[in-house]
């Protein structure tokens, strides 16, 4: 490296002193505390000896926690809403299909960042007065709920396309056979089309699940203190940008690896005996 840089990995290991509450669990409480400390002693951050002015390690853990929580909840929404929309796109009723298509086009084609701002700043204003007030003032952690809903609905449009493709990949004869034995259309989806199509689309679902974790970093723009936000904050406090963002990068990669491991396990569990395994197991 051409420039002179003092590597100091100990920064990322700063823990809270015993007995001092740092709000690791609820990071909403951290920002005010951290900010006031920063205002009180700006010079500290240049002093390597005092780099433990804040429990940076706990910030990272807290950020990681929120990244996981926001992403997992968003995934639950994406999976359920996406399944409903995806199924709707395969139904016979033209108006249901049109509605579902509109949803997909809308949520897939507006940039995620813009959607984040729309949900956070615009939607509460459009709602009835009391609901808007509730969202802005009474709901605890509004930015976190907003991020979950926004990410969930955005990724639902992608899940919907995958579910639709999965259903359309199933030969028409399967539907005929299921209907012919007296199942209702809803039962045909529930017992035949969906179980098979979910299995078909496990690979794209996996990469989209990883995408949720990566996209969750956009939530920092509305004040969610997830992993990237916390890393930025630590970098601003300590100027140890390389260490901090190396750790962050590694953590994101770790998450991705864990997700793909879990999904590979799920794929194995759901593998249909006698058919060719796509994953090569």
């Amino acid at each position: 490296m051409a420039m002179k840089y003092n590597w100091d990995w100990s920064v990322v290991l700063c823990r809270a002193p015993e007995g001092v509450a740092t709000g690791t669990g609820g990071s909403a409480a951290q920002l005010p505390g951290g900010t006031s400390a920063f205002a009180g002693g700006a010079a500290q951050t240049f002093d390597t000896g005092a780099h433990c002015a804040q429990p940076y390690f706990d910030w990272i853990v807290s950020g990681l926690g929120w990244t996981v929580v926001v992403s997992v909840f968003a995934w639950v929404i994406a999976f359920s809403v996406g399944s409903v929309i995806g199924v709707s796109r395969t139904l016979d009723q033209p108006w249901v299909r049109r509605g579902a298509t509109t949803y997909v086009e809308l949520f897939r084609n507006v940039p995620l960042l813009v959607q984040m701002f729309l949900w956070f700043f615009v939607v509460p204003e459009l709602l009835p007065k009391e609901t808007g007030y509730f969202l802005k003032r009474q709901l605890p952690l509004p930015e976190y709920w907003t991020a979950i809903v926004c990410l969930g609905f955005y990724h639902a449009s992608r899940t919907a396309e995958q579910v639709r493709a999965g259903i359309e990949a199933i030969p028409r004869g399967q539907t005929y056979a299921a209907l012919a034995m007296g199942l209702t259309p809803a039962q045909v989806y529930r017992y035949v089309l969906l179980p098979v199509s979910y299995r078909i689309i496990i690979p794209p679902l996996t990469s989209d699940f990883m995408g949720i974790f990566k996209n969750s970093s956009v939530a920092l723009t509305i004040g969610v203190l997830e992993l990237t936000a916390q890393s930025r904050q630590i970098a601003e406090y300590t100027f140890n940008i390389f260490e901090v963002f190396t750790v962050t990068t590694v953590l994101y990669i770790l998450i991705t690896l864990i997700v793909s491991t879990i999904m590979r396990f799920v794929e194995k569990r759901l593998h249909i005996p006698g058919t060719i395994a796509l994953g090569g197991n």
Binding site: P171, G173, Q174, Y176, A177, A178, A180, M181, Y191, V192, P195, V196, R199, L270, I272, T275
Partner: peptide
Amino acid sequence: IGMVFQNFELFPH
């Protein structure tokens, strides 16, 4: 009414 198809159409899963 029972029905049997050319491609069997058993449910693979």
